[in-house]
């Protein structure tokens, strides 16, 4: 693949392998996982519990480096096995948005502050960050709950605030780990459609780990994992 084509990819992983322990206690959590996600593409990652989905997501999210393999983001080599090529925390802050199964908001901050902090950490002034955060919350339909703490929000509202935080810095990639698990099917579908909208509008690559087969039509591509191996189901076709 040439340089220009690489740059069109939001994410590319090459032979990611993660081994925990050694000797008799060695566990291969992920083996030779390869994935390409184009900008604006929304990818579903399916698989039973313990299949290695979360391990893959944390490796791509630069949280839990692989034992071997490479992670490229926007054509740039970021992780070569466990060797970081950039400051991972700084890179995460600028390029990666996370959404989790639980909303994972900071409990002592209000909804708007949870979004604002992510923008401020990226160097924006407090005033600009607050304005941007309010706009994101408005866009996601929770603008009227901006001053409420997470404990005062419903599960769906919390998840939308979490999505707003993930989008806060206009990231290159968004990684979501079962983001709809705590939502009803209607809200769950709304969130999935939101990811698709964000990916298409902002050109971000989105990987969503999910068990929810009802909303698979929202995704451009589907990958599956089983026993640490990644593959594309034969019925999955990019849109």
């Amino acid at each position: 693949m040439n340089q220009a084509a690489d740059a069109e990819l939001a994410i590319e992983t090459k032979s990611l392998t993660k081994i925990y322990g050694s000797g008799n206690t060695e566990v291969v959590a992920m083996r030779d996982a390869c994935m390409k996600v184009a900008r604006g593409e929304v990818v579903a990652l399916l698989g039973p519990s313990g299949s290695g989905k979360s391990t893959f997501l944390t490796a791509v999210g630069l949280i839990n480096p692989p034992t071997s393999g490479q992670v490229f983001i926007r054509g740039q080599l970021i992780l070569d096995a466990d060797q970081a090529q950039v400051n991972l925390r700084s890179f995460r802050r600028q390029h990666i948005g996370f959404v989790f199964q639980k909303s994972n908001l900071i409990p002592f901050l209000s909804a708007i502050e949870n979004v604002q902090i992510a923008i401020e950490l990226n160097g924006q002034s407090s005033r600009v960050a607050r304005q941007s955060a309010q706009k994101l919350l408005d866009d996601l339909g929770v603008g009227d709950r901006a001053d409420n703490r997470p404990s005062m929000l419903s599960g769906g509202q919390q998840q939308r605030v979490a999505v707003a935080r993930a989008l806060a810095n206009n990231p290159s990639i968004i990684l979501a780990d079962e983001p709809t698990a705590a939502l009803d099917s209607h809200r769950g579908r709304q969130v999935m459609e939101l990811f698709a909208q964000v990916a298409h509008e902002h050109g971000a690559g989105v990987i969503v780990v999910t068990h929810d087969h009802r909303a698979l039509d929202v995704f451009d591509t589907t990958y599956e994992m089983e026993d640490g191996r990644m593959f594309q189901p034969t019925h999955s076709q990019p849109n």
């Binding site: 999210g61 925390r89 700084s90 995460r92 802050r93 996370f98 900071i106 002592f108 950490l121 990226n122």
Partner: peptide, 15 residues
């Protein structure tokens, strides 16, 4: 008490 929040801050890239 706020170890989870600290981990979260690290996750979103707080220095």
């Amino acid at each position: 008490d706020k170890i989870h929040s600290i981990a979260l801050l690290k996750l979103i890239g707080a220095p």
